[in-house]
């Protein structure tokens, strides 16, 4: 197996263009597990550890740009105010050790439907920055996933960052697992209020072949919420929202849970998170994360 360790992004892109079968590795929390279990035998590894711009976050055109390799721990510590939904999702990733190594770029690269960051990225309308020697393109995250553990990346491309607008309203993330910490999602739900756009963003995790938004639920709630003079939501509205979120899922029965339970739980999570977010919007104040 070849091992490439470029010092700059330009070198990394050149290496990826030359060795399309090289698997990029940053924190290694996914790739190393696959190698250790012999599930995958890449011809080469492309270590992104030395590329500074992948490990930084900052502002760009009014959005937060998070380098693909910025670990979850830093998202929790440094971006909780601007991106509360993503920070909440990051808080549920694995253990402290994993959060020190794992990154959103890795989650996107693996494109597992169970990746914890996806629902938050979907709810917040994140865009994925993708680069190659041919140039850089931006892909809305809802268009990024193409199947179970598949995404839109071309063989010569690397994920370099995600761009997310700072929150303008309340955001929530909830995840069901069968223990109280350090667990892969049985199902997960992300929600973001966008008062500036008078809409609500959603994201479902571990509930379909790819992470996906609950579009009909978003459309329904957009018509129900009174953004001008906000009032408490009727329970029937919350329940309808939950039911539409559950309908958006196409889950499977597997070792972590049944399809029926996943649908049921998503309805509960959607109802609860919308209730919490709307209460906050009504003046309950922002909930702190982590």
């Amino acid at each position: 197996m070849d091992f490439f360790r470029p010092d700059s992004l330009a070198e990394a892109l050149a290496a990826k263009a030359e060795h399309a079968d090289a698997v990029p590795i940053a924190g290694g929390t996914d790739v190393m597990v696959e190698l250790n279990f012999d599930h995958r035998r890449p011809a080469a590894l492309l270590d992104l550890g030395r590329i500074v711009e992948l490990h930084e976050h900052g502002r760009q055109d009014g959005k937060v740009r998070i380098g693909a390799a910025v670990p979850y721990a830093r998202i929790i510590d440094e971006l909780g105010r601007e991106l509360p939904g993503l920070a909440m999702a990051a808080r549920t990733v694995g253990s402290p050790q994993i959060r020190n190594r794992g990154s959103v770029g890795g989650n996107l690269g693996a494109a597992s439907p169970a990746g914890d960051s996806h629902p938050a990225l979907l709810a917040a309308n994140a865009e994925v920055e993708i680069a190659s020697i041919r140039g850089t393109r931006m892909v809305p995250v809802k268009d990024f996933y193409t199947g179970v553990k598949r995404n839109v990346l071309a063989p010569d491309e690397l994920i370099t960052a995600v761009h997310i607008a700072p929150a303008t309203g309340a955001q929530q993330f909830s995840k069901v697992g069968t223990r109280n910490a350090m667990v892969i999602a049985v199902c997960a739900f992300g929600l973001a209020l966008h008062p500036d756009q008078k809409r609500v963003g959603t994201g479902l995790g571990s509930a379909a072949p790819t992470p996906r938004p609950a579009t009909k639920a978003e459309e329904f709630i957009a018509t129900e919420l009174d953004w001008e003079s906000p009032k408490p939501l009727a329970d029937s509205v919350l329940r309808r929202f939950g039911a539409l979120v559950a309908e958006a899922a196409s889950p499977i029965d597997d070792v972590r849970g049944s399809a029926a339970y996943r649908r049921h739980a998503l309805a509960v999570l959607a109802r609860r998170t919308l209730g919490w977010a709307w209460s906050e919007h009504l003046g309950g104040g922002r909930r702190a994360c982590a």
Binding site: M88, R91, T92, Q172, F173, S174, K175, V176, G177, R179, N180, A181, V183, V268, L269, R272, W276
Partner: peptide, 16 residues
């Protein structure tokens, strides 16, 4: 908050 069922995953604030 971490002490409710669901623990770190923010599934309830006491509901249910």
């Amino acid at each position: 908050e971490l002490g409710f069922p669901g623990g770190a995953a923010n599934t309830t604030h006491g509901e249910g």
